[in-house]
Design a protein around this nucleic acid. Structure first.
Length: 637
DNA sequence: AGTTGCGGCCAC
DNA sequence: AAACGTGGCCGCAACT
């Protein structure tokens, strides 16, 4: 094995005023700890109320020198510090290869770790407890330096002491900040070597490159149709009120009945004789369930059922998406500033598999709703709406629009996870795709089963295929397919027989678990099996999850790689605005629409698997909810 | 008063 | 033999 040369970058960590959302982000710095390799950390305090030791420009000079260091610069979550330095000091963000980040190393070291923060990692790997933080906290809690603010120990409240380090004296905060740069440097020295020794250097570099692209996206934001959003929030909020009054009247319930409380609602419905309690399923903790299926089973008044169904969905649209979007868009004249998590992060957000996640959440926006009332789909047995003019549920994606004068281009990977499964299958599944890159795997599997006299609909075959990726058991599969467990077992076995490579994968995972050997994703990241644990008095092992980790993790690598390649090749006026797992959305001037679509296609399809990765495009000159097919199965429409 | 877990919604 | 994966976030209810 080649000896790994560990670089010796300068470590930098800002302390700032309270962190607020953009456009007020990034916050003003009050000090910065800078640690050169082999030297003591130095805290430049310039913005504290007391205990400062330098001027703003002296700190700036020290920062510029650090940025010029030949081995580059090192951060814990550099996306924050780089933004602070560029925004407030005008210090340009260097090329990706000059920037190191322990956050990615900690994640790559063990994506399953309970905590992924600098301090827990330092405590576990270096044996360094976080004592300096205690010191700052003690000072703030006992001094309470801010008039009208009661600083507390909480972690989520507004007045958490962590938000007020700028109010503590520079020398005390300095010990804390220096403690962090010392930890960061030590962890880097330890983990960089380990990560490269384990063959994860490319994966580390991929995260370093992506971080700068995500920062660019965060700063640019994405546009919403503010006027429409304002109007619709008002309108639907009114409807929520009307609906609640109707429900309370129908149930003859007291005016203060809280419909958001499942238990209150169930009680009121029983009281009013609108529900057959014996038909309603229970939750894991034994309470009467109030989800869609439970209500469907137990509510005897179908009109009431429809209204409750509508209300629950509208509540999700309004509270999770529309109202928060409106609130932030009002601050910025129509922009939403998203925070992108590229790995599982110290705040316990982000994915362990490496897929992106974001706040606000753009990963689970409703697409389309099934009709609820009969006026939406005449001729069905749906209940009548008690309101004659109730609007359809909002199409939430429609509020996302291209930038002024732009259009949207959008591409989805075609069956990304299935293709990647075929890549790892390495046998007949892979060969099928190589023979016909646009094949529909579910149909092909179904056809092969039919040749053996086993006739299935597409749906159960598709469910079983996804079940294989997700590690689904035959019990859940049977439920999903509406069959007996034995039938589900037979179908699963039949598909595994068609593709012996898949069967081998599963036995290989079992061996890996037993021998404590990792899997490696396409992007070179290692995952060990999660440790076994006792569940219901039985030792449960998690080898069944490893195929999912392999496939989903590799899909994440694939998407990240394609974003990086597209970003490197794109026109400067094209702006990446969203990534939803297997989908990339870009805002471009109309005259670039065709050319950027092709650049994006090439970037996405250039990622090297043994099965050709393919994609399909759509466009819109209005909004994200109104995308029209541009190319399908390789042919422009 | 703040935290945590549950149950609910949704996506890929 | 059996185990459906990855998430965000809202609101309630029970806990400290």
């Amino acid at each position: 094995m080649a000896r790994v040369k560990v670089p010796k970058p300068v470590t930098i960590d800002f302390e700032t005023h309270k962190i607020m959302p953009r456009p007020l982000y990034p916050p003003m710095p009050v000090g910065v700890s800078i640690k050169y390799p082999g030297k003591k950390a130095k805290y430049y305090a310039f913005g504290h109320l007391e205990g400062n030791n330098c001027t703003w420009s002296e700190a700036e000079k020290a920062l510029r020198d650090a940025y010029d260091h030949s081995d580059g610069i090192l951060f814990q979550n550099g996306k924050f510090d780089l933004d602070v330095a560029e925004t407030h000091f005008g210090i340009k963000i260097p090329e990706w290869n000059k920037i190191h980040d322990t956050m990615f190393l900690i994640y790559l070291h063990n994506p399953h770790a309970k905590e992924l923060g600098l301090k827990p990692a330092a405590e576990e790997l270096l044996g360094m407890p976080p004592e300096e933080q205690e010191e700052v906290g003690e000072w703030l809690l006992s001094e309470q330096p801010i008039p009208g603010v009661r600083i507390n120990r909480g972690k989520q409240g507004d007045n958490y002491f962590g938000a007020y380090y700028s109010w503590a004296p520079g020398d005390i905060v300095g010990r804390y900040a220096d403690g962090d740069t010392i930890r960061t440097e030590k962890l880097f020295t330890l983990l960089y070597k380990e990560i490269l020794d384990r063959g994860m250097g490319e994966a580390y570099d991929r995260e370093r490159k992506l971080a700068l692209i995500l920062l660019e996206m965060e700063r640019q934001g994405l546009a919403v149709n503010l006027k429409q959003l304002r109007h619709d929030v008002d309108m639907y909020t009114d409807w929520m009120g009307k609906i609640e009054s109707w429900v309370i009247k129908t149930l003859k319930a007291p005016a203060d009945l809280n419909l958001n409380s499942g238990q209150q609602l169930v009680e009121a419905m029983i009281e009013a004789g609108k529900v057959d309690e014996s038909l309603m399923p229970r939750t894991a903790t034994g309470k009467i369930a109030t989800n869609k299926d439970a209500l469907l089973a137990g509510v005897t008044d179908k009109k009431l059922l429809g209204v409750l169904n509508y209300r629950e969905r509208l509540k999700t649209c309004l509270n999770t998406f529309m109202k928060p979007w409106l609130e932030t868009a009002e601050l910025s004249g129509g922009l939403i500033y998203t925070i992108w998590n590229q790995t599982r992060t110290p705040d316990s957000v982000g994915t362990r598999t490496g897929r992106l996640s974001s706040t606000p959440n753009f990963q689970n926006i409703p697409k389309e709703f099934a009709p609820i009332f009969d006026h939406e789909k005449p001729g069905t047995k749906l209940p009548k709406s008690p309101f004659k003019d109730i609007p359809p549920l909002p199409k939430v994606r429609c509020y996302v629009v291209p930038f002024e004068g732009d259009v949207l281009i959008d591409r989805d990977f075609s069956q990304q996870e299935i293709r990647i499964l075929a890549h790892f299958d390495g046998g007949s599944m892979m060969h099928d795709y190589q023979a016909d890159p646009w094949l529909d795997f579910h149909d092909v599997a179904r056809g092969k089963l039919a040749e053996q006299g086993l006739f299935y609909e597409r749906k159960p075959v598709k469910n079983t295929n996804f079940g294989l990726i997700y590690g689904m058991g035959v019990g859940k599969l049977a439920e999903k397919n509406g069959t007996t467990v034995d039938e589900a077992k037979d179908l699963k076995a039949a598909i595994l027989k068609l593709y012996p490579g898949l069967k081998e994968m599963y036995s290989d995972m079992r061996l890996r678990m037993q021998q404590d050997l990792p899997i490696r994703t396409w992007g070179g990241r290692e995952y060990y099996c999660e440790p076994a644990k006792m569940v219901n008095g039985r030792l449960m092992t998690f080898d069944y999850k490893m195929v999912n980790v392999l496939v989903q993790g590799s899909a994440a690598d694939c998407t990240k790689e394609s974003i990086i390649r597209y970003h490197a090749a794109k026109h400067k006026d094209a702006k990446i605005i969203l990534n939803v797992h297997d989908q990339i959305t870009v805002s471009v001037p109309p005259k670039l629409m065709k050319s950027e679509m092709e650049v994006l296609r090439k970037a996405m399809e250039s990622v090297e698997f043994d099965v050709q990765i393919l994609s399909e495009g759509s466009i819109s000159d209005t909004n994200w909810g109104d995308l029209k097919d541009y190319d399908k199965k390789g042919k422009i429409i």
